Computed example of a mutant assay.
Amino acid sequence: MTGMRFAPRGYGGHRRDPEQVKRDGWREQGVLAVSVDDDRLTWPEQELVRQLGDKLYGPKASKQEVR
């Protein structure tokens, strides 16, 4: 016996980081996964992402709305 294995032989290996999964999803499937808080986006871009999310899925759940 060679010890404990958590996956059958040939099924282990390299795990992609989340950014690579998002990049591949966009390039291969046309699916975009982006956080409204992504620091790479300008404020208008973040606002556009928020508005798209609200339109497609409804507003984000929040603890309390601040005015």
Rank of each mutant, 00 (worst) to 15 (best):
M1G: 11
M1C: 09
T2W: 00
G3P: 00
M4G: 03
A7V: 14
A7G: 06
P8L: 02
R9D: 09
G10C: 02
G10Q: 01
Y11G: 01
G12I: 01
G12M: 02
G12D: 03
G13P: 06
G13F: 11
H14G: 02
H14K: 04
R16K: 06
R16A: 14
D17N: 09
P18F: 10
P18C: 02
P18K: 07
P18N: 10
P18A: 13
P18M: 07
E19I: 12
E19N: 09
Q20E: 14
V21N: 09
V21H: 15
V21K: 14
K22D: 13
K22Y: 04
K22P: 02
D24K: 08
D24V: 09
G25P: 00
W26P: 02
W26L: 12
W26F: 07
W26G: 10
W26V: 03
W26H: 13
R27M: 08
R27Q: 14
R27W: 03
R27V: 03
E28G: 11
Q29R: 13
Q29A: 12
G30H: 01
G30F: 05
V31E: 04
V31S: 09
L32R: 06
A33M: 13
A33Q: 03
V34P: 00
S35Y: 12
S35W: 05
V36H: 10
V36N: 08
D37Q: 09
D37E: 13
D38S: 09
D39I: 06
D39H: 13
D39K: 12
R40D: 14
R40E: 13
L41T: 09
T42E: 02
T42K: 11
W43M: 04
W43E: 12
E45N: 01
E45W: 09
E45F: 06
Q46F: 00
L48D: 09
L48Q: 10
L48I: 03
L48V: 06
L48H: 08
L48S: 07
Q51E: 07
Q51Y: 00
Q51A: 14
L52V: 10
D54C: 07
D54E: 11
D54Y: 06
K55M: 04
K55H: 06
L56C: 06
L56I: 10
Y57T: 05
Y57G: 13
P59W: 02
K60R: 15
K60E: 13
A61P: 04
A61R: 09
A61G: 14
S62T: 14
K63F: 03
K63I: 11
Q64P: 02
Q64G: 10
Q64C: 09
Q64V: 10
Q64D: 05
E65S: 12
V66A: 15
V66M: 15
R67C: 12
